[in-house]
Amino acid sequence: MAFQVLLNVFIAVIWMFLQNNYTALSFFIGYVVGIFVLFVIRRFLLFDFYFIRVWAVMKLILLFFKELIKANIDVVRIVLSPNLNNKPAIVAVTTELDTDLEVSILAALISLTPGTVSMDFSDDSRTIYVHSIDVPNKDEMVDQIHNTFERAIMEVTK
């Protein structure tokens, strides 16, 4: 991946020299041209096209912001309601992520979302114990974590 990024930057610099225009816009256009060139020759490369992983990282960031906004609205709803009808719970989330880094990223994303805190890991580091301020259905919460954050992390790291 690092080789492809350097190659893309090299193509952008060559583009700037060929255009005889040394501005950020010319570099950006060259970088986009480099992405296109690398996409066209991707079948001759020994590794995957790097921009797929960059796109997956951008999707993970957007997913986190979407979940952050939804969680903030839920917390505001709970705080401003006249009577407390929330059901706090501790939920064990078993993950299919392989490495400790992936599990740590999942725990961090869960903890950064308002209303939830990653409390502890199991001994094999494959189960995260999550405390949530409102859990109407534990299975739905686990499925939501699996279908959002865990799947996005797998796209980035695989």
Rank of each mutant, 00 (worst) to 15 (best):
M1S: 12
M1E: 10
A2T: 15
F3S: 10
Q4F: 01
N8A: 09
W15C: 09
M16N: 07
F17T: 04
F17H: 11
N21M: 11
N21L: 12
A24D: 11
L25G: 11
G34W: 00
I35Q: 10
F36C: 11
V37C: 10
L38F: 14
R42V: 11
R42H: 10
L46S: 14
L46V: 11
D48K: 15
D48R: 15
F49H: 06
M58C: 13
L62G: 14
L63F: 06
F64I: 02
F64S: 07
A71T: 01
N72S: 01
I73S: 02
V76K: 05
I78Y: 14
I78N: 10
L80A: 14
S81G: 01
N83H: 13
L84F: 09
N86F: 02
P88D: 05
P88R: 07
V91Y: 03
S104R: 09
L106T: 09
A108M: 12
A108E: 10
L109G: 02
S111E: 08
T113M: 01
P114Q: 09
T116K: 03
V117P: 07
F121V: 02
F121Q: 00
S122C: 05
D124R: 06
Y129R: 05
S132I: 02
D134Y: 08
V135S: 08
P136H: 04
N137Y: 07
M141L: 15
D143M: 06
N147H: 06
F149R: 06
F149N: 03
I153A: 07
I153Y: 07
V156D: 02
T157A: 00
